[in-house]
């Protein structure tokens, strides 16, 4: 059994991957039971894997082993602190979990000075762009002017500390809104690219990884029968769905 499993792990993984992919994509046609089932399997596997990895790669080597095998008993205090999270399930003592959340929020908030200094000070420095100079070409000058125009007008658009009464401020802010559109266009274009790549990844799996295995399997009578049965099942299900839909939304409506 173990030998057979080991020999067929890759093939099994490919078939399970294809099944899972089709199950999730079936929601694009309509919400269905098959999709719901695999959605729950996904949550179960994710949670189970999370617990396994957290134990095997974090808690076991960095907490349990130093504590139990090397005698570093002090690590038990980490468990006491960690247990404070679970007080949130008690109505009476839920506030105790706030203490540990407060600790993490405080640590994160305390870094704001460093954040500002290390992230934004260099940004301010880099915003001082020379417009003219010995090593500055005319194209660099144009770019610097474009940069200042966009930076100042976009910041004017976001500046709400005083009312935009003056026509100069109004016009600058309006220009800022226009320039920001270029930025949002860039984000939109990049988003389309990113999301399409994710679908390309799945399609690549089906076309280049799973499909060659399916073609090999096609030579077996058993597999052919299974595919025919699956196609019939999908057609019947589709027909029933259409029928149910036409009852709910009659063509005359």
């Amino acid at each position: 059994m173990a030998e057979w499993l080991a020999a067929h792990t890759k093939t099994l993984s490919l078939w399970c991957g294809a099944l899972a992919t089709f199950a999730i994509y079936s929601v694009l046609y309509a919400e269905n039971r098959f999709y719901r089932l695999f959605e729950h399997i996904f949550i179960g596997l994710s949670a189970g894997f999370g617990v396994y990895v957290t134990w095997s790669q974090v808690l076991a080597p960095k907490w349990w082993q130093p504590m139990v095998h090397k005698g570093q008993w002090q690590w038990i205090f980490a468990a006491v602190l960690g247990s404070m999270f679970y007080f949130m399930y008690s109505k009476k003592h839920a506030w105790v979990s706030r203490v540990i959340f407060g600790l993490f929020m405080g640590l994160s908030a305390g870094l704001m000075f460093r954040d500002f200094y290390e992230i934004y000070f260099p940004q301010m420095g880099a915003s001082m762009k020379p417009i003219v100079g010995n090593s500055i070409s005319w194209w660099d000058s144009v770019n610097a002017i474009v940069f200042y125009a966009i930076l100042i007008s976009s910041m004017a658009y976001f500046f709400f500390s005083f009312e935009h009464d003056s026509p100069v401020v109004q016009k600058t802010a309006a220009a800022g809104r226009w320039f920001l559109m270029i930025g949002f266009g860039a984000i939109f274009g990049a988003t389309v690219m990113g999301r399409m790549t994710l679908f390309i990844g799945r399609l690549n799996f089906l076309v280049n990884d799973w499909w060659p295995t399916a073609r090999v399997a096609w030579q077996y009578r058993f597999f052919q029968t299974a595919v025919v049965l699956a196609v019939i099942a999908v057609l019947v299900q589709g027909f029933r769905a259409l029928k149910a839909r036409s009852k709910t939304f009659p063509p005359s409506a």
Binding site: I119, Q123, G125, I187, G189
Partner: peptide, 15 residues
């Protein structure tokens, strides 16, 4: 790709 457009200020500043 979704994150990339926002990274150009950091490339410009050398961070």
């Amino acid at each position: 790709a979704v994150m990339s457009a926002e990274a150009y200020p950091y490339l410009d500043s050398g961070q």
